[in-house]
Write a protein that binds this DNA or RNA. Structure first.
Lengths: 68, 68
DNA sequence: TGCATAATGATCTTCAGGAGGACATTTTGA
DNA sequence: TCAAAATGTCCTCCTGAAGATCATTATGCA
């Protein structure tokens, strides 16, 4: 499975969903879905905006985890 | 920008688009788009299948690159 | 070298789900 | 306590992945 660490990254920096949405320009609903890991599809543009804003790489945001 | 290294990873392993499509179960058109970096949106399920098949992590497949 | 087969590129339709917005509810901090 | 901010939720719109098909190109082997 693919795990999204947005909530963890945001928690570490004590960021709010509105902050991230406002600063990245990404729709709040989209941030909410990624935060709660209910998204099943992502725009590369969204990943780009998050990596830039959070100053991280794609691997920090998404992780491949073997599910057994 | 977000760079997709699928073509590089496939090249290293000398894999064909049809092979990847067949083995991962991902639609060939989707593999083609990622290969040529014309995709702007990705299913997490697709990333999952590719990471599993290529035995790599998300960060190996996608990279955040500052464009200036 | 010729030819059958496989691989790729390109295009069309369908449809799931993200984008964006609106409203309700909850949380906050002054 | 109460107003503003933040979050949750629901709705509609629209993009692009999925899936299929056809044309073209590359391949391997007899």
């Amino acid at each position: 499975m693919i795990k999204c660490h947005l909530s963890k990254l945001m928690g570490e920096k004590k960021l709010k969903i509105v902050d991230v949405a406002r600063e990245t320009g990404v729709n709040r609903g989209t941030i909410t879905r990624l935060y709660h890991e209910t998204a099943s599809r992502v725009e590369l543009e969204t990943i780009d905006a998050l990596c830039r804003y959070l100053d991280c790489d794609v691997g920090d945001l998404f992780e491949f985890k073997e599910d057994r």
